[in-house]
Design a protein around this nucleic acid. Structure first.
Length: 853
RNA sequence: GCCCAAGUGGCGGAAUGGUAGACGCAGGGGAUUCAAAAUCCCCCGGUAGCAAUACCGUGUCGGUUCGAGUCCGACCUUGGGCACCA
């Protein structure tokens, strides 16, 4: 009997699938369609275990759906624009295009041995001119519909390299290459009007029944709808053109506790004042040196600058409040100005304490606990949940007990009635800035004409191709310094004009690729007949790190594509079901160099806690996401060479729930391989035995139907690890079953088919060994017989006061009274009762009995 | 700082509010073998006990319930995101 040799069988069956054209997707009215998609990879050059896990999960679904009679679309492509290609070009002198396409070739070659059921005929990369040209067409349609516009926005500016930096290129406020202090600089940039869709994007989350609740919650919080009051403080002796400061607050109920007004350093008033005030100009400049990330702003020490100006309180014209410029106020949110109520906001309180401003409580606990002190005295802001009842001591309606929510509504009503501002709904969601001052991205298809201004490129001139002759020997955008590329003619007037040199955010590329997969070679962004047939994506699978931005942008794009006639109405929510998978992690092995600095070692260099080469002991750091810098990576290619793709697939599915991180361990991979070898041995033995069909093995058939039921449920609900545990148990049962029974062959067939989505090559091999016709991949999924799933007798645990004390075996449908009688007769129960009557007996049919004494 | 999630044996984990630890790894014992590899069988949360069994046990503290890993509140730790990384 031949041993299990993955290397021999895997290539053979991949070839067979290929020849049969099994995974080519074409429209068909005969079968229901099923579109399964994994988030496409960035072509870094090597596939990693995270990819293997992601695509294996998608493949299990795709193969399962194929077996259950669906017309499956399962495509793959490359998210190919982005900074790493330019960084590589700067570091080693090549061209981003060559680097990217060569990486794609490498990764495709690494991916193919996994035996994924992908329709490779649909493959594309977002850096293909055929793709980004269609993206430019989409952009022009969106521009025409008013979904794109230009405005000023701040970027991280490296004054030494004279270039724009991404947030991740800023380290401790300095440029990662130059080390120069980064400044904020304002540029005119393109924006998508995603905020116009805020309400729709929020409301529609309710309909996404097959999305994880946490992702919907994160998106809802990101969109951040709030109800508040917008009103103005009148400014006393303000500079020319500034007689009031418009503020937005979600807590108008605390207006009578206001003690200062703050404006952003980028607020028009701050900008006006800094012209005549060198100190303020210095303060603002300091603020503008901070990074642009919200995290950095929130964590920074809260600082303010007293402008010396005063405003009048809207409800008491004799009450004057100082106006500060403060570093924690965002110009992008609300009006860029706030009022501070230190008593009920810790940040405002810290600020007030720092600058000697008054603290005035507007409410206090309804019934103050022992030791409660007002913020005025305690230095701790009193911030109860908005739903909690509090006593207002300085509200609008006198001394009253109500919840914050009620008080906010009442305050808005009161202010509106008194002519102080109006209630408004605002969103935290900002418009999406898509301009990037970089080469390796999709060119924004517009030109700048001295006569006509900003003019869209004519569609017949698309794609606006990236020039190949560029150099990366200096920082900044090569398109800016290209001698001829910028020169063009104005599509409107025909005069000489300049091309826009900014390219698009790579998030744009990934916001519609799922639609392009439905007709990847179409001469328009999509083909409506194909899109109408294949959309929506029935199952989308990817990392939780994309829970907000990528998914929100894609939802916006689907809406925009519908408005511009590129997607049907049903596709405005493009992903019917979403699954977010965890990462693949590994232990980190570290030693220290002479200076005590850590030196990392690859897992393959380590054995039994020691370096193979020198025998030096390594320090083991707990599992973390696989990363090159920590060297805790296991290359899937190595694993496939050693054990085969089926082992890698089986292992990444088996050890952890799919939504959680899985730790790669050599022992685990070994165990997976051993198990597959065992299945190979057991099934080939059964296939080879020609013992006559004899006894009908009822128990084995029952186990088989239970396994079919459980594994099917596991696959459908992303319980892959549980499904695999079930397959282990079923394999054990099969292994111990009586030789020669017909049931045994039947059970072996079921096992092979149930495993086929996870270990497709092994299953094909065993399917053939069992002399089954056709390919296992095409064979119908087994059906569980409901009647075989339930046993006639059940074992009921008997609890006394919630603690298990005994168990009884009873017919499954025995009535409650009889079950209770038998339970009370159990030795342990009689002993516990000691002659007394139970207070209560709870019988949960088929599950448990609890006797309460 | 803000938003979201997760914490269960030596390890990965299982468990519609109903016998906590399925299944796998590691470990221990045994069979087979001249020996090994491979394979097969048994044991395997802690404490006490020869045992039957008893008590304790799902990050911490409290609550709801006949019954809580599961639901509620507070806290701790770890991970993801924070708008120019992909």
């Amino acid at each position: 009997m031949s041993r299990y040799s993955a290397a021999e069988i895997e290539a053979k069956w991949q070839d067979a699938w290929d020849k049969a054209g099994l995974f080519r997707a074409t429209r068909s009215a005969d079968k229901p369609k099923y579109y399964v998609l994994e988030m496409f990879p960035y072509p870094s050059g090597r596939i990693h275990m995270g990819h293997v896990r992601n695509y294996t999960m998608g493949d299990v679904i795709a193969r399962y759906k194929l077996a259950t009679g669906h017309n499956v679309l399962h495509p793959m492509g490359w998210d190919a624009f982005g900074m790493p290609a330019e960084n590589a070009a700067m570091a080693s002198g090549g061209h981003p295009k060559d680097w990217t396409y060569s990486n794609i070739d490498d990764m495709r070659a690494q991916m193919k041995p996994l035996g994924l059921s992908i329709d490779w005929s649909r493959e594309f990369a977002t850096c293909d001119p055929e793709y980004y040209g269609q993206q430019q067409a989409l952009f022009l349609d969106m521009l025409e519909k008013g979904l794109v516009y230009r405005k000023n926005a701040v970027v991280n500016w490296d004054p030494v390299d004279m270039t724009v930096l991404a947030n991740e290129q800023v380290e401790n406020g300095r440029g990662w290459r130059s080390g120069a202090l980064v400044e904020r600089r304002e540029l005119t940039q393109w924006f998508f009007r995603i905020s116009d869709f805020a309400e729709d994007l929020l409301e529609a989350l309710d309909g996404l029944d097959n999305w994880p609740a946490k992702v919907k919650l994160m998106q809802a919080n990101w969109i951040g709808r709030s109800r508040g009051l917008q009103f103005a403080f009148s400014l006393i002796d303000g500079p020319e053109g500034h007689d009031r400061i418009e503020v937005y607050t979600t807590r108008p109920d605390t207006l009578m506790g206001a003690s200062f007004v703050g404006v952003s350093p980028d607020h028009p008033l701050a900008r006006q004042l800094e012209k005549d005030n060198a100190d303020l100009a210095a303060f603002n400049a300091e603020c503008r040196r901070m990074g642009t990330s919200e995290e950095e702003l929130e964590k920074a020490e809260k600082k303010g600058f007293d402008t010396g100006l005063r405003v009048r309180h809207p409800f008491d014209t004799s009450w004057e409040l100082p106006v500060y410029v403060a570093n924690f106020i965002l110009m992008d949110y609300g009006t860029g100005a706030i009022f501070g109520c230190p008593a009920h906001d810790q940040r405002d309180l810290d600020f007030a304490n720092r600058y000697g401003l008054p603290v005035v409580s507007t409410y206090e606990p309804e019934t103050p606990e022992e030791g409660f002190a007002r913020p005025e005295d305690s230095g701790i802001a009193y911030v109860p949940p908005k739903s909690e009842k509090v006593r207002y001591v300085k509200g609008f309606a006198g001394d009253e007990v109500q919840t914050g929510e009620q008080a906010i509504d009442a305050a808005i009503d009161f202010c509106e009635a008194n002519g102080v501002g109006q209630g408004v709904t605002k969103y935290r969601l900002r418009d999406w800035g898509l301009s990037r001052q970089r080469y390796w991205g999709c060119p924004i298809p517009v030109v700048h004409c001295d006569s006509c201004g900003v003019v869209p490129e004519a569609k017949e001139n698309l794609p606006v191709r990236l020039p190949d002759d560029v150099s990366f020997d200096q920082p900044g955008n090569p398109l800016d310094r290209h001698p001829t590329w910028r020169d063009c003619t104005c599509p409107a007037c025909g005069k000489a004009a300049r091309r826009e040199t900014d390219t698009m955010d790579t998030f744009v590329d990934s916001s519609w690729y799922f639609a392009r997969f439905t007709a990847p070679r179409a001469e328009t962004p999509t083909d409506m007949a194909e899109a109408d047939y294949w959309m929506n994506v029935d199952q989308y699978i990817g990392g939780i790190e994309h829970a907000i931005l990528h998914l929100l942008y894609s939802r916006f794009f689907a809406r925009a594509m519908h408005l511009t006639g590129h997607l049907p109405a049903k596709a405005v929510e493009p992903f019917d079901a979403l699954f977010t998978q965890g990462m693949v992690t590994h232990e980190i092995y570290q030693t220290r160099d002479a200076n005590g600095r850590p030196v990392y070692h690859l897992p393959e260099e380590v054995e039994d806690g020691k370096l193979k080469a020198t025998g030096e002991a390594v320090e083991v750091i707990p599992s973390a996401k696989m990363s090159k810098s920590k060297k805790n990576v296991v290359d899937p290619v190595t694993i496939i060479e050693e054990f085969g793709a089926d082992t890698a697939r089986w292992f990444v599915l088996s050890d952890s729930p799919p939504e959680r991180d899985v730790e790669w361990t050599a022992a685990g991979a070994e165990a997976a391989y051993k198990h597959l070898s065992r299945v190979h041995r057991i099934v080939t033995e059964i296939a080879a035995s020609d013992a006559p069909a004899n006894d009908h093995d009822e128990a084995l058939l029952r186990e088989m139907h239970k396994a079919i039921h459980d594994v099917t449920g596991g696959v459908e609900s992303f319980g892959f690890n549980a499904a695999i545990a079930r397959l282990y148990a079923f394999t054990n049962t099969l292994s111990k079953s009586q030789a020669g029974s017909d049931a045994r062959r039947q059970a072996a067939r079921a096992l092979v088919k149930l495993m086929s989505p996870m270990t497709p090559h092994l299953s094909e091999e065993l399917w053939a060994a069992l002399a089954q016709e056709g390919l296992a991949a095409e064979a119908a999924w087994p059906q569980a017989d409901e009647a075989m799933l339930v046993d006639d007798t059940v074992t009921l645990p008997i609890q006394v006061n919630g603690k298990r004390r005994a168990e009884i075996s009873v017919p499954r449908d025995m009535d409650k009274a009889e079950v209770e009688k038998q339970a009370l007769a159990a030795d342990a129960v009689v002993k516990a009762l000691d002659g007394a009557q139970p207070k209560k007996v709870i019988v949960v049919p088929g599950r448990i009995v609890n006797v309460v004494i």
